[in-house]
């Protein structure tokens, strides 16, 4: 009789399961960790967006912490993200743009219209670099350290508050190490 409290165990388990499943309803199914965290940036050999004769490869990332942003002129969210990328660019963040599944003409028009925050621009018409980065939509952003190791993955759109909350602290963190 003194063990009567044991009878509440099923109720407690039920409530715990309920809370667990309730939380699950709010999870973003696309917010998954990238498989490439702490892996080297994949090798690639592509051309510069503004010049088809200039080759760009992985060495463009070495020596500086870089924000790699995968975008495309076909992607509406990328337009909304441009002000944040420009703000980061003005704060001195080095940004490499990967123009994913796009055409040079449309991409150039897009950058003329919305501004060009990219220190390096790579043209990835077939999405091969995007594929090797595990990208299945745009925009996506990665922070790559000076040794070319992927340190942080930002799923989707960089919101204005993400600049101060996550992107700048992460850039700082990997710049000092």
């Amino acid at each position: 009789m003194q063990r009567r409290w044991l009878l509440f165990i099923p109720l407690v388990l039920f409530i715990a399961l309920g809370v667990f499943l309730w939380k699950g309803l709010d999870l973003n199914p696309f917010a998954r960790d990238s498989a490439l965290i702490d892996q080297g940036m994949p090798e690639f050999s592509l051309t510069a967006l503004d010049d088809p004769t200039v080759n760009v490869d992985r060495s463009a990332l070495l020596g500086h912490v870089t924000l790699v942003n995968v975008w495309g002129s076909w992607c509406p969210t990328c337009k909304d993200e441009m002000p944040q990328l420009l703000a980061l660019h003005h704060k001195g963040v080095r940004i490499m743009g990967v123009d994913y599944k796009d055409t040079r003409v449309k991409a150039r028009d897009f950058l003329n219209q919305f501004g060009n925050p990219f220190d390096v621009s790579v043209f990835d018409p077939d999405g091969t670099l995007g594929f090797d980065l595990g990208v299945y939509g745009a925009p996506e952003s990665f922070i790559v350290d000076a040794r070319g190791v992927i340190r942080y993955h930002h799923t989707g759109y960089i919101r204005p508050e993400d600049i101060q909350d996550t992107i700048l602290p992460e850039i700082k963190k990997w710049s000092s190490s």
Partner: peptide
């Protein structure tokens, strides 16, 4: 595929 897109 797992190397790129994870266990998912």
């Amino acid at each position: 595929m797992v190397e790129r897109f994870g266990d998912y």
